[in-house]
Design a binder for these strands. Structure first.
Length: 564
RNA sequence: UGGGGUGUCGUCAAGCGGUAAGACACAGGUCUUUGGAACCUGGACUCGGAGGUUCGAAUCCUCCCACCCCAGCCA
């Protein structure tokens, strides 16, 4: 196993494994698997499972297989398979030659079903879906046995063969396990093992007319692959007795231990494949890879790093509590990683013209700027400076509010890496009253150095040279939903979509070094946040930057408090 | 109402009978040519509740309460 992302802390799953190692239950072997159904894109919740399964395998010197759990032809496709492969690999995991498909086991699975029938453990039921439901009983009442429950083994076998041969229409017959219609666990009330679906499977085509159900296919796939620990989410806890029952009836040597953990929930988004499909289908987002989506593809496009996501998965822990993780933790992990690796640059999102009255008209200076304030190994670059600059609109207030440490009438500020400037005057649009230009004077003695007289200025602001800067579009993303738990609120969850989750600004000005920035490359725009060159919409002629995450910003906190 | 789970700081989460880790968030502070980063400090007199066992309980026992999952020919 190439990767070595060991979890720093232990958890109950690892404790169980430790115990198995001690008692030699699996001869010291650890084999896990990540078994997605290829009917949608992977999201951050899947990443938790990927990290758990691959992480455990690596930690115990075992293996982790990637397995497509493709037992239901409707909705599954090659596109999804490819996206899953791509995403797991991008996250940094390697399954070597162990990419498997449940659909490759269809013949073996069929033979297992035949054995079950021969042993009198399964029967063909010819009730309709509705009739089966009616007889299943309720939470408090036992179910009723199917009238077909006592067909002879021969008849069952014959019928099952004919099901496979495609002699029956969808829904006319199913294969059921013969267990206990009175079981308090509804899963054990003669569960359906096979159904007829005359649908084309993306891999097996028209080869099969019957398809195994999850409960039948999953435990057997695990057993075939000699998985030792079958890690899944909490909602399958009720299915564990059936998982064990099937393997026990078939007397299979390889009998994995199923362990269930709590799935991830993240605040201000939804992590349910069905809901995400809905968002994509309704056009609420631009696609699976919309940077606002909690999908791996979306996060990748947004600019999140695999390291940040893996670190996040490590920090949230593994337990059995239903939890709702604060999005702030994910953002923290992203900032933590990007703070270290992203080169700093200057860029202005909403430009305000600033003229330095006493700076020579045609003079251009170049300032040496560090690419990283704490890491000199990342080098430096030269940024041109001239008489006319752009600064951030937010960095000037005509009547500065309390604690506003930026530019305003009568004030002095430092232009990052260059001079201290002093306010002189402003120009307003006569119609709108909007400030269109600010005039200042500069102090030549403060050229990228402290003022000789030691005076303090209001603060430091960023800038670009008007003439030398390049234009770009910025896409500022915010949380997808307005409420922490959209699925926990009244009514349709899409009601709570955040209408301001995307703001496009097409008039940004950036320092010229960004010209030709590679798609996917990430930068910190000083004082603003981390941005990623959009891998799809950006072009050499039209830079498009996705805001990955803002910098931690103590000013907006102060400002909102001051405004109360 | 049957069965299966879970309840420890705002959010996660350690703890496994010896007197409540850590992280994020939050609040103060130091430093700073990013209101960034870094660094320091603060916070659960208490572990869903009530009883009980014990010298000692978040940890063991009893009862109660709350929340989640299960009645797809989805996974």
């Amino acid at each position: 196993m190439a990767q070595a992302h060991f979890s720093s802390s232990s958890d109950f799953v690892r404790e169980i494994i430790e115990e198995h190692m001690k008692t030699n239950r699996f001869q010291g072997r650890v084999a896990t698997r990540f078994p997605p159904e290829p009917n949608g894109y992977l999201h951050i919740g899947h990443a938790k499972s990927v990290c758990l399964n691959f992480g455990i395998a690596a930690q115990y010197g075992g293996t982790c297989n990637l397995r497509m759990d493709d037992t239901d032809p409707s909705g599954e496709s090659l596109e999804y398979v490819e996206s899953i492969i791509n995403d797991v690999r991008w996250l940094g995991f390697d399954w070597e030659d162990r990419l498997f498909y449940a659909s490759d086991y269809f013949e073996q699975l069929y033979q297992c079903a035949v054995r079950l029938i021969k042993n009198g453990n399964a029967y063909v039921c010819s009730l309709s879906a509705d009739e089966i439901r009616e007889r299943r009983g309720t939470l408090t009442e036992p179910g009723k046995e199917s009238p077909y429950r006592n067909r002879s083994n021969e008849e069952n076998l014959h019928l099952f063969e004919r099901m496979r041969a495609g002699e029956f229409e969808d829904g006319t017959h199913v294969l059921r396990a013969k267990i206990d219609m009175a079981s308090p666990n509804i899963t054990m009330r003669d569960p359906v093992l096979y159904r007829i679906k005359r649908a084309t499977h993306y891999r097996t085509g028209g080869q099969w007319r019957i398809y195994p159900m999850y409960d039948f296919a999953h435990c057997l796939s695990d057993s075939i692959e000699k998985i030792t620990h079958s890690i899944c989410t909490l909602e399958f806890e009720n299915n564990r007795p059936l998982y064990d029952w099937i393997l026990d009836q078939l007397k299979l040597d390889s009998h994995p231990r199923q362990i269930e953990f709590a799935r991830l929930n993240l605040s201000y988004t939804v992590l349910s494949k069905r809901r995400l499909i809905e968002l994509v289908g309704k056009g609420s987002v631009t696609g699976w890879d919309d940077p606002r989506m909690p999908t791996i593809a979306g996060m990748r496009r947004r600019g999140y790093t695999p390291d940040a996501i893996r670190n996040f998965c490590d920090r949230i822990g593994v337990a059995k509590n239903d939890s709702l993780i604060d999005m702030a933790l994910l953002e923290h992990c992203v900032r933590e990683d990007l703070n270290e690796r992203a080169p700093r640059v200057l860029g202005v999102l909403r430009p305000l013209r600033l003229v330095i009255d006493n700076y020579p008209e045609d003079q251009v200076e170049e300032f040496e700027c560090f690419n990283h304030p704490q890491n000199s190994a990342m080098g430096s670059r030269k940024v041109p400076f001239s008489r006319v600059l752009y600064i951030e609109q937010d960095d000037f207030q005509e009547n500065p509010q309390r604690k506003f440490n930026r530019l305003g009438p009568g004030r002095e500020v430092r232009l990052r890496y260059s001079y201290i400037i002093k306010y002189a005057s402003m120009v307003k649009d006569e119609q709108t009253g909007e400030i269109t230009e600010v005039h200042c004077t500069y102090d030549p003695e403060t050229r990228n150095a402290p003022p000789p007289d030691g005076r303090k200025v209001e603060g430091v602001i960023h800038w670009v040279s008007a003439e030398h800067s390049i234009s770009a579009e910025a896409r500022l993303y915010d949380r997808l939903f307005q409420v922490a738990n959209p699925l926990g609120e009244e009514g349709d969850f899409t009601k709570y979509l955040n209408p301001k989750s995307l703001e496009r600004i097409d008039s940004c000005r950036l320092e010229p070094s960004l010209k030709g920035a590679a798609p996917g490359s990430r930068y910190q725009f000083e004082r603003l946040g981390y941005f990623c060159v959009d891998p799809i919409d950006s072009s050499p002629g039209g830079l498009v930057l996705n805001r990955i995450v803002t910098l931690r910003d103590s000013w907006t906190k102060v400002a909102s408090r001051e405004n109360k």
